[in-house]
Amino acid sequence: MTIREIVQPLGLKLVVEGASDKEILGGYTSDLLSDVMANAKSGYLWITNQKHQNCVAVASLLDLCGVIIVGGTQPDEDTVAKARAEQLPLYTSDMSAFDIAGRLYEMGVRGPIQP
């Protein structure tokens, strides 16, 4: 399943399309950047309330497949510019992080299995 395929069922709003045809290999929800650095893996989709440009740096370093900014929050302008430069898919949603993650889980997306 790719990001492009979840846009309609989840009602996501497009900010930056980027490489939206990449496969979603998992998901992670957090607003703490170090938590994401420690636990999200390559190809994961990141759900967050953060909207600043450092999110793009984290997503690129980890090779995440995309970012969904939730809760009706809009990304900062420089976040959008950086996401465009990095070809990072960036979407927003009025839904909460909990609801988006729940829907994705129903659709078969999983997080890292904790030992």
């Binding site: 607003d31 703490l32 950047l33 170090s34 938590d35 650095m37 420690a38 967050t48 953060q50 600043h52 450092n54």
Partner: peptide, 14 residues
Amino acid sequence: MGFGAGMGLPNMER
């Protein structure tokens, strides 16, 4: 901004 969670040095160590 989501920094300063006290996870940076432990992440580096790991």
